[in-house]
Amino acid sequence: MSLLDFFIRQRGEILARTLEHLWLVGASMFFAIGIGVPLGIALVGRQNLRRWVLGSANIIQTIPSLALFGFLIPVPLLGGIGSTTAIVALTLYALLPILRNTFIGISGVDPAVLEAARAMGMTPRQTLWQVQIPLSMGVLMAGIRVATVVTIGVATIAAAIGAGGLGVFIFRGVSMASNAVILAGAVPAALLAVGADLLLSLFERRLTPRT
């Protein structure tokens, strides 16, 4: 039986698992961006907070993903078996690149431009929305792109704690010693990652101000 035949016969489940996977990644990115971008902006000009927050995000990044999923299972509210736990863990993973790039982008805006904005009577809020965020959009989007691609990969491990997604095929294939089943999870996951990378680089290029 060819691999393609197998994929075609399994297309129903492959599609369902892909949608589950997209849901895990989408929800995690939603929270990671929602937390990471404002927090990254808040770090600008706050050295102590910055050391603490970026340090913590770095440490989280070093925890093996399977262990992080495991650690979260006994945690009340956030933990347990299923997709909630997975989304929490994936959000924590995605946080570092978004935080770091937001911080780098915002603090990299030309000081002369900021001085002009202040001197001309822009409020800090106007400066943030009209100057700092647009000028750091390219770096910020690059962080989101990297975080998304990494999350698509790491989300396959979420199947280990019953969160579903394309990892289900991979774990099943490993226990069945079946390459075809592993590939039914790995190929769509790889395609998702490449697709997300292409799509987001397109956005990134469009949103990067040419200076």
């Binding site: 002369a112 431009v113 001085e115 002009a116 202040r118 009577g121 000028l135």
Partner: peptide, 17 residues
């Protein structure tokens, strides 16, 4: 106060975007 004063800084600082 600042909007009532024109200010040309040394580096100009035009908004590049």
């Amino acid at each position: 106060l600042r909007r009532g004063m024109g200010y040309v800084i040394q580096e100009i600082g035009l908004f590049p975007h």
